[in-house]
């Protein structure tokens, strides 16, 4: 059963190095004129899929992204890293603000069925909403086994042996393909998309679709009430003697009096 077909979900997020600023009206964060890039966990997923292809485990790697037109840049990066083709599911900017993991999972599962995929691979979570839901929901919708938080993937006898990162250790599980995998941070070190590869990626095919093509209703299921900055850390103070320190600690109930 050589030649697995792998679908990789790639989300376009605000770059990890950018300082996030909340909009003054607290409805979201400022995205205009801010550098965006591929979600780092999705990058790890793309890298692993490409490595599977290089090891001849996978036959084709298809990158999928849902979102506004700029997502095509993200898909180009994925193709520059080695994905064979990509599918851009265009969602306009206004709808995209309310696009939830459930919608993306529905689209991904439909894409997986249409492309006859054997593996759906995503990052474990996106660094913007930190939802950590999409992979799991895809598995539920397709009724496929899931191996989330993968830190090592090996293939043996038509099964995948996946080492997962869990609280306080590692867990090794076996899954049958078709399966849904999500990548953890330590799975691999993603390669850098080099300039010649980005040029070559422009020649690779990119299909443009709409959520309606997959029969997915992208109407909002939730509404955002407000978005706020995390609380600012209180500044410390210098004390002039041990006595004041002890008194302060006692007042705060941190040492027995």
């Amino acid at each position: 059963m050589s030649g697995l077909r792998v679908i990789v979900g790639c989300k376009r997020v605000i770059d990890y190095a950018v300082k996030i600023r909340v909009k003054p009206d607290k409805t979201g964060v400022i995205t205009d004129g801010v550098k965006h890039s591929m979600n780092p966990f999705d990058e790890i997923a793309v890298e692993e899929a490409v490595r599977m292809k290089e090891k001849k485990l996978a036959s084709e790697v298809i990158a999928v992204s849902c979102g506004p037109i700029q997502c095509q840049e993200t898909l180009r990066t994925a193709m520059a890293m080695g994905a064979d083709k990509s599918i851009h599911v265009e969602v306009d900017a206004a709808t995209y603000e309310n696009l939830q993991p459930l919608h993306v999972a529905k689209i991904l599962s439909k894409v997986a069925q249409e492309e006859k995929a054997d593996i759906v691979f995503t990052g474990k979570q996106a660094i913007d909403d930190d939802c950590n839901q999409t992979g799991q929901m895809v598995a539920a919708l397709l009724d496929w086994p899931q191996a989330t938080f993968a830190s090592k993937i090996e293939k043996a006898n038509g099964e995948l042996t996946v080492t997962r990162e869990i609280d306080g250790g590692l867990e090794t599980i076996k899954v049958q393909v078709p399966a849904v995998l999500t990548a953890d941070l330590r799975l691999n070190e993603p390669r850098y998309a080099t300039l010649p590869n980005i040029m070559k990626a422009k020649k690779k095919p990119m299909a443009k679709k709409k959520p309606a093509d997959y029969g997915v209703d992208v109407g909002p299921r939730q509404s955002i009430l407000k978005v706020e900055d995390p609380p600012v850390r209180q500044a410390g103070s210098k004390l002039d003697s041990v006595e004041t320190l002890v008194t302060k600690l006692r007042d705060a109930g941190l040492v027995p009096s």
Partner: peptide
Amino acid sequence: YMLRKYRTLKKR
């Protein structure tokens, strides 16, 4: 770049 990204995510 790789290390910088890795460290930021690890810290976060």
